[in-house]
Simulated assay, not measured.
Amino acid sequence: MHGHGNDMTKHRIIFDTDPGIDDAIALVFQARHPAIELVGITSVFGNADIDTTTANARYLASRFAPHVPVAHIHGKDALGEIERIGHVDKQEDGHAAHRFIVDTVRANPGEIMLLAVGLLTNLALALKEGPGVAALVHEVVVMGGAFGIHGVLGNATPATEANTHGDPDAADIVFGAPWKVSIAGLDVTHETVMTRAFLASLRDGAGDAGRFVWDVSRFYQGFHADDGVPDGIYAHDYSAAAYVVARDLFATRRGPVRVLTDGIAAGLTIQKPDSMHTHAPDWDARPDCEACIGVDADAVLDLFANTLRN
């Protein structure tokens, strides 16, 4: 469809999301990028209740990715209410989100990337329901957490980022599972700001998608104006999508990651870098994750603009 060359490098993605304004921005990018094939959208509660995020996901999919199925988690608490997860609205795929993930991964072994930009509940439920599914996933890329680079530890609390804070048990499970995990946390998303001027240039020069990104970002801009970013919005979820196709624009650090699951810092992500040789049994038994610790923010923004303009 996009010419012979891209067929070899297509990233086949299930986008696990809680839309969400920055989620919407990340979805538009994925729908427009020639190296990305969206195979499904799964919604999770987070930015709003599940009915709202699922309705948002359906709207975004119908507007920008009309052939992509949407499935959602059913139930209001994180890893609870497992029994009720089968009841799904008819307008959607008919699968619960985690079941959709398990089935799609099993049908496409080694090919599916999970791009998760909300709470990690759906991924943890998929691991619970489909033991062995981790070995069949190509890679998991997460927007979540923070590792203290430039002093950034959290936004939901002084110690925690919202996605890991919202379901820390799920995050600890996902980061410890035997699949490849890459994490774009606040350390890089706070470096990448879509300014008002940048968004206005998209509005005026990137067609329908650019106007949509401008319109949807107006709400977010007001929210962030009280948050020390007067001139734009953080590119939280988009940063993880950019990592998928342009990981050379990010500096990363390898090592196992733990998530604190209780206490006042529940949701805090802590990596033991591979360069640290101290014995640390709570980390040492777990697989390495790649944590983003630096970003070429200007290039990441150029990638977004160029993708929408094409």
Rank of each mutant, 00 (worst) to 15 (best):
T269A: 12
F219D: 12
F212L: 04
D187N: 15
D237M: 07
F198D: 05
P256M: 13
P256I: 05
G210M: 05
Q221H: 15
E191G: 05
V216Q: 10
D227A: 11
G228F: 08
R253V: 02
W214M: 14
L249W: 01
A225Y: 04
P256A: 14
Q221N: 14
T195M: 08
G210T: 07
F223P: 14
R211K: 13
P273Y: 12
Q271T: 08
I183A: 10
R258D: 08
M194H: 13
E191K: 14
R211W: 11
H224L: 11
W214T: 14
V244M: 01
F212M: 09
T195K: 03
P273W: 12
T252P: 01
G263I: 09
R196F: 12
G255Q: 01
I233H: 00
R203M: 12
A200G: 13
D226K: 12
H190T: 12
V193R: 05
V216N: 11
F223T: 15
A184G: 00
Q221V: 11
T269R: 02
P273K: 00
I183H: 13
Q221L: 10
D208M: 05
T252H: 07
T189S: 14
R203T: 12
V216Y: 06
V244K: 00
A266C: 08
F250E: 02
H190W: 10
D248I: 04
Q221W: 08
A251Y: 06
P273H: 11
A266H: 07
D274E: 15
H190M: 13
S201I: 11
P273Q: 11
Q271M: 15
S217D: 04
D226I: 15
P256T: 14
V257L: 03
G267S: 11
I270T: 07
F223G: 14
Y243T: 00
R258I: 06
F250V: 12
G232N: 06
R258C: 12
D187G: 10
V229A: 02
A225C: 03
L186F: 04
G255I: 09
G207A: 15
H236Q: 04
T269D: 01
A225M: 07
M194T: 04
K272P: 03
H190E: 02
V188I: 06
D274K: 14
D262N: 09
V193P: 02
D208N: 04
R258T: 04
F223Q: 15
A209M: 15
S201L: 13
R247G: 03
A242V: 00
G232M: 01
V257Y: 01
D237T: 04
L199H: 03
V259R: 01
V216C: 07
Y234H: 13
A240N: 00
R247K: 08
R258N: 05
L199A: 05
V245R: 08
R253N: 03
R254H: 06
T189F: 05
A246Y: 00
V213W: 00
G222M: 09
S239P: 01
G228Q: 10
I270F: 01
D262T: 09
G207R: 14
T189W: 10
G205A: 10
G255N: 01
A265V: 02
G228T: 06
S275C: 09
D226Y: 14
A246V: 02
R203S: 14
A197K: 12
A246T: 00
G255H: 02
I233T: 07
D226G: 13
D208E: 11
Y234F: 07
V259G: 01
V193G: 10
D262I: 03
D226P: 09
A235R: 00
